[in-house]
């Protein structure tokens, strides 16, 4: 007789049952795959970051007019120079011009915040970057900023040259979501979920299904097992089933 604390799991029966319900699992996988694909495409909002690099050249001229001296102090002056350039590049004089020239949908302040400038100590290199939702616009805006900044810096700071090491080119997307991969992941999740549900329902089935159940649970002999048949399907009284049917009918 069945012990309350243990449960006999009919593994072969379980696997066969899973096999018989394979279409549910496949259906779930397909539905989830479609869902995953659609959701991935819908929530996909890639951004594009354009980058540019500028070289700032200022001849180091001694007060007496002799040519450039490269020493520690001149390097530190270079760093200071870069800091000043950074301020001007992100200053509203520059960004204001760019906003106006390109007719951008943001104000100078916003653009100032959006452009980042970085430099490495003891070099004369500036790295600029700007992120936008449109790749072409990202490149165009950054290049405009570079040009405008170059003009203003040369004018204000009396640098000799500020040349691009590379200009901004149209960038690729930063973080786009691969819809196909999402679909596959979703399909696997769907299939596993369906399988788990099927297994749980199977294990929870405590109905009398076959002779073994009659023997195990009831301890009486099975006199006969009458198969499902159209011939014996006679008109029955209407079933008032308040109990939910688990298992095959």
């Amino acid at each position: 007789m069945e012990n309350r604390n243990e449960m006999e799991i009919d593994l072969l029966g379980l696997l066969l049952h899973l096999k018989s319900k394979i279409w549910i699992i496949l259906l779930a996988a397909v539905v989830f795959a479609l869902g995953g694909f659609v959701i991935a495409k819908a929530t996909n909002s890639p951004v594009y970051t354009a980058t540019a690099r500028l070289y700032v050249y200022q001849k180091n001229v001694a007060p007496d007019g002799t040519a450039e001296v490269l020493d520690n102090s001149s390097l530190s002056i270079a760093t200071q120079l870069l800091r000043d350039c950074a301020v001007i590049i992100t200053g509203e004089n520059v960004t204001g011009e760019v906003v106006g020239d390109l007719n951008l949908n943001m104000d100078a302040k916003a653009l100032s915040k959006a452009v980042t400038v970085s430099y490495r100590e003891n070099t004369r290199i500036l790295d600029l970057s700007y992120t936008d939702t449109d790749p072409q616009r990202a490149a165009d805006v950054l290049n405009a900023v570079c040009d405008e900044a170059a003009q203003q810096i040369t004018k204000i700071m009396n640098v000799d040259a500020i040349n691009p090491v590379f200009k901004a080119s149209v960038p690729a997307a930063n973080n786009s979501v691969d819809a196909n991969k999402s679909a596959i992941t979703a399909a696997i999740i769907g299939a596993v979920l369906a399988a788990v549900v099927i297994v749980v329902i199977f294990l929870m089935d405590d109905t009398i299904r076959n002779e073994d159940d009659v023997d195990n649970y009831l301890g009486v002999s099975t006199l006969a097992a009458i198969p499902v048949s159209a011939e014996l399907k006679v008109v029955r009284p209407s079933r008032k089933s308040g109990k939910k049917k688990i298992g095959k009918r």
């Binding site: 002999s221 099975t222 006199l223 009918r249």
Partner: peptide
């Protein structure tokens, strides 16, 4: 004993 009916 028992008779199992509608056995699949």
């Amino acid at each position: 004993g028992a008779v199992l009916n509608q056995v699949d």
